[in-house]
Design a protein around this nucleic acid. Sequence first.
DNA 1: CTAGGGTTAG
Length: 774
Amino acid sequence: MASLPSSVSLTSTLKFQPQLNRLSSPSLPTEKNPSIPWQRSHINTKLDGNSKPMRGLEYKEALSLIRDGKKVEPSCYLPLLQQCIDKKSASETQILHAHMIKTGTHQDVFVMTFLVNVYAKCGAVSNAQKVLANLPERNVVSWTALMSGYIQDSKPEVAIQLFVEMLESETFPSNLTLAIALNACSSLNSIELARQFHAFIVKYKADHDTSIGNTLCRLYSKFQSLGDAIKAFQKIEEKDVISWTGMMSSCEENSRAATGLKFFPQMLVEGVKPNELTLASVLSMCNITMSLGLGRQVHSLCIKLGHISNSSVSNSIMYLYFKCGCTDNTENLVDKKGPISIITWNAMIAGHSQAMSLAEDDHSAYGIGVEALNIFLNLNRSGIKPDAFTLSSILTVCRKMLAIELGEQVHAHTLKSGFLSDVVVGTALVNMYSKCGSIERARKAFLEMPSRSLISWTSMINSLAQHGYSQQALQLFEDMRLAEVRPNEITFVGVLAACSRAGMVKEALEYFKMMQKEYKFKPLSDHYGCLIDMFVRLGRLDEAFDTVKKMESMQLEPNESTWLLLIAGCRNHGNDELGLYAAEQLLNLKPKNTQTYVILLNFYIAANRWKDVSRVRKLMKAEKVGKLKDWSRISIKGKVYSFKTSRRLHPRNKEIYKLLDELLDKAKSMGYEFDDNTEEMGVEDNDEDEKESGKMVPSAIYHSEKLAVAFGLLNTPNNAPIRVTKSISMCKDCHTFFRAISSMTNREIIVRDSKKLRKFVSGQSSLAEFGNAG
DNA sequence: CTAGGGTTAG
């Protein structure tokens, strides 16, 4: 038994309202109020042992006696009142209440106390209040019931007021009362008040109690104070499954899934058995952190504990396997007895969509995308209707596959099924169109949205910035602020990118400042990246490098893209010393990476440092660094055709090469000059002969994208745009050549390579550049 | 009273 302090002073602990300061101290347990408040389950508003749910017959008997207006034992009302709670029926409660008054039962304090509880739980707080007012004495149960009622009635402040009155009337709160009071703090969104209650709780050593501790933990989590949540959790003497599950959920809510997962093995070690909710929570965190290994173990645990048939659990596991690209083991997870639920379908599609980002290269990502589309087709064949989750996921798949035609079909589907008004679907459409090269349709989709979220605005701002529409991006940012939508860090990435593309140094620095001063956002690597990019574009390399140093001083490690930006700038503006430094940093950061070596090589080639070129090549050989795969692809009528530089794989290659040669001649006559790059593409060798001859750089005349475009010209209608995707960066010559072709053939040519999207219309080109989000 | 639980957009 917990010992109680000899006197209780609330004035030092609870300072919510001025009147609290006038409180007298509640007295110690008395006959009137005999409970030791923080003993768990000592007081319970539910019926205790002798009033288990009545058997049908007894219940009916009691009911008929009451209907007949006969007097019954007070305890007969209890199961009937319990029924009223279950049904949440205030009117039936009133009928019973009237009967009690008629038969004199309203003198029974115990039954009437319970009646307060019933009214409160049925949402009839005023009735509860009246009953309480007529009671000769109040106890902790009736006070607590009333508080609970007011919370349900969305009047937490009244509940707090009642708590104060309760103390004034020298009634001690039970652990349940305290838990309810804490919930009132939660509803009032007042962490200050919660801390006062917490102090009160600590003072009476109730923080060791399981229910109280659980409640405190969740409360602090809600107030985004995870440290306090963990402290509250640690104070709990007997941590039950709810404590552990709550602690882990709290971590998840506060974006600390990895921390949350650490509690799981501890829980098992302490011998607490996880239930379905625990497992669902753990799996959800596995999904966030992509913990496949742990996920597998949890999977077998779920089977062992018999929870695998729980659909939340099995869908979570399936999602994990798919998103980690691990497609075995998934068959058994689908319940084959009934129709597959839409959530299961969605988990499969979303899993594939996520897996695309992890794929080794674009080619395998494309394959996973095709899988996702097949699942979508099967879903439609099964007769189940796709929902907003399905459509937004599948639009993301289209975005990642750069499949604008498919995206258009899904768009039509969306319109037909009425999900176009869904904000997430609308945002997915904006991004799909933007990434597939159509900023016009992205903008149209954005304007047609009935409502826009922070992410919608951010997507549109970033899209405009990526397509080089800096002014429009900044204007939209101002519109967003006028619409009173609060931007976040990623919005500012778009804003700074817009400034960077347009060389607006002054504005960029202003927004950078605004972000920190007005919005209290700490700059991220991406924000610095935009500034570095801006200085690099302007050839202000010193300032670019200063920005890198500034970034380091802010404890932000420069990343791959930081160094890549610097290297590109140094190559364009001939700063060998800084460029080499950056290249070496990159090599430290990503050793054995093909891209890194190619960059290093190109740097030396451009600087005519041939000794270094051969040194790096030897190093690549010694370290067995792989080569990049180069191919270009074009999709015509749903079929995909792949091309490789200088290869003659396609059955119609004669026509293709003939057309290319013709176009080349014609372009030359119009002033185009072929520029065979000395640039090392680091691509895989086309065949053994070429390797033998030592020809390291295949001629740009027949680069794979040229072959693909020629094939497109041959096989699509005269006015159709030609869309080609390429696995690595496109070279300068192809760029100039496509400008010429677009004017000669009067065709729109769109090429998406690993970094940029280029659009060629009537001899002009426009560029969309995608950062990491692309 | 503590316990929500599968799947969507930057």
